[in-house]
Design a binder for these strands. Structure first.
Length: 501
RNA sequence: GGGCUGCUAGCUCAAUGGCAGAGCUGCGGACUUUUAAUCCGUAGGUUCAGGGUUCGAGUCCCUGGCGGCCCA
């Protein structure tokens, strides 16, 4: 939202409350007060004051004079004594008191006339407790540090979800849960990095702007690079570059960064999302899954202090211990009450689909149909953390064949609370098989499958130098926060893309 | 993509097709111990946009925009 269009309309077109606040800004200037201070000589934050005086007795004085700052969240004015609740960026609140005998008639009158809810102010005064026992700063002086020209929402009614997402800065002012999410996310990401560093992994940043997109089945964003006069892609996954790292000998490597997928925009899909991927030489999908579990459990410990996290609705969710492990076809057979394997004929799979009213897309290959059946019948039951193992080969072009079962690949998906949190492979490292799989994908792309991968010659060249056997794992950071907090993706991303107003 | 549904004051919400309202916020006043302060007074509107039906539309119809829920 630009202010130029509003300013261009002139003040007369602004809502009354915004006109009044602009007028108060002018009044401050006319009275010789800066409405937007260079700084304020703060000697203590609200939190530091609270921590220094946890148990001040009722109606007592400390003799301790502090200079502190905060946003005015509530005001309670009487004739000669004013109370204001100040709030700091971390959500700490503390009461400021302004009395006639301490600040004088003129400054008290200016406080009452010029300070609105939402203004940022500096208060200098003695730390005391009020007659009701409220820890307070009794002002000897005050000043405006930033005049707010827009009224805050009503504090006692929830903002609409749309308003919270579109104006997250206001949400962060008003709602502790919004502030907590930002800090929980930072804590979780830091925990992931700590966990990797403790295990000797190297963090890298691979290209987000790519000449060929690959590493996942998804539609890319396309942009134009003028210098080359050609279209380039925002990456859909870092996988193919991280494997080049393994070829080059970076044996334990991870990246935490953004991916971009040109797909839906709704409450569960964001076009840009943060992703963790890690690869370890001479590991496999089982060991990758074990490390993923440890990473998540250590993140839970960092954020919640326990492997049992408390979700936003108050329910407790246990991420501790070993996690259940099932297979795609084993669990599907159980759900259908009939034996289904990767060998089960396509027509029979279609029959199962019809039985449960699942519409079959004729473009689906048999493996895809089996996965759709699995997602319909089994995934909704996967609330507790569960590794789902051994997927059909034809839908996973970057995974190596199962060590003992034909037609399957060594891949797991990790499900938590009914959604997919992460995935892991025993990586395909045979460049000849890799080329065959890519060529199959290229054919699918020609047939119109917009999610199929193009052939990446440079990636194949890298593979031909020899990539060590490896396990690789990916996990959505936004989804990790969903699992830790029980909130939706639009809450875990601070500024999700929204349609223009 | 389909179905249902919402959009009204700064915020949260009312209003049988018949004078656009309330609470909080704001503004004016009273109050030196308040905690969503209280009390008295008062202002605030392109009812998402455009079109249509009607004597009359926030309300009914159509198109579009932005959300939400459900389904695929």
């Amino acid at each position: 939202m630009t202010t130029t269009s509003e300013a261009g309309q002139g003040q007369d077109d602004l809502p009354e409350q915004m006109r009044i606040r602009r007028a108060k800004r002018e009044s401050l200037l006319e009275a010789g007060h800066e409405p937007y201070a260079l700084t304020y000589p703060r000697t203590a934050t609200l939190k530091q004051i609270r921590e220094k005086y946890p148990d001040l007795p009722i109606d007592s004085a400390t003799g301790d004079v502090v200079a502190t700052t905060g946003r005015v969240m509530f005001v309670r004015n009487t004739g000669k004594l004013c109370f204001a609740t100040l709030q700091d960026g971390d959500g700490t609140q503390l009461q400021a008191m302004l009395s006639l005998d301490k600040v004088g008639a003129e400054r008290l009158e200016e406080w009452k006339r010029l300070v609105d809810l939402g203004d940022q102010v500096g208060i200098t005064g003695e730390v005391i407790s009020s007659k009701r026992g409220e820890l307070s700063v009794l002002a000897s002086d005050w000043s405006m540090t930033a005049k707010s020209l827009r009224p805050l929402p009503v504090a006692h009614k929830a903002m609409s979800e749309e308003a919270r997402v579109r104006q997250r800065y206001v949400d962060l002012i008003m709602r502790p849960e919004a502030r907590d999410m930002v800090r929980a996310r930072a804590t979780a990401v830091r925990s992931l990095r700590d966990s990797f560093h403790q295990r000797g992994f190297v963090e890298v940043e691979t290209p987000m702007l790519q000449l060929i997109h690959g590493g996942a089945a998804a539609r890319p964003f396309i942009t134009h690079f003028n210098a080359l006069d050609r279209d380039v892609y925002l990456r859909i996954a870092p996988e193919l570059f991280l494997k080049r790292c393994l070829v080059g000998g970076i044996d334990k490597v991870f990246e935490i960064n953004r991916n971009f997928r040109n797909e839906g925009l709704d409450s569960s899909h964001s076009p840009e999302f943060a992703m963790l991927e890690f690869y370890e030489a001479y590991s496999d999908y089982d060991r990758g899954g074990t490390l993923l579990r440890e990473l998540i459990q250590e993140a839970a410990m960092a954020v919640a202090g326990s492997h049992v996290v408390t979700h936003a609705d108050g329910t407790e969710f246990d991420l501790g211990g070993e996690w259940r492990s099932i297979t795609v076809f084993g669990s599907l057979s159980e759900a259908l009450g009939e034996e289904v394997t990767v060998e089960t004929p396509y027509e029979q799979l279609v029959g199962f689909a019809q039985k449960i009213d699942l519409a079959v897309d004729p473009k689906w290959i048999p493996g895809k149909l089996a996965e759709e059946l699995f997602e319909e019948l089994v995934v909704p039951t996967l609330q507790q953390p569960t590794f789902v193992k051994d997927y059909p080969e034809d839908t996973s072009p970057l995974v190596r064949a199962h060590r003992s079962q034909r037609g399957l690949v060594e891949k797991f998906d990790l499900y938590v609370s009914g959604f997919e949190l992460g995935t892991g492979y025993s990586e395909l490292i045979d460049p000849v098989i890799q080329r065959d799989r890519f060529e199959l994908q290229a054919k699918l792309a020609q047939k119109g499958d917009s999610e199929a991968m193009p052939l990446d010659e440079d990636y194949l060249r890298a593979m031909e130098y020899g990539m060590p056997p490896a396990g690789g794992v990916g996990m959505g950071i936004d989804r990790l926060l969903m699992a830790l907090t029980g909130l939706g993706i639009r809450e875990t991303i601070m500024f999700p893309l929204v349609r223009p107003e």
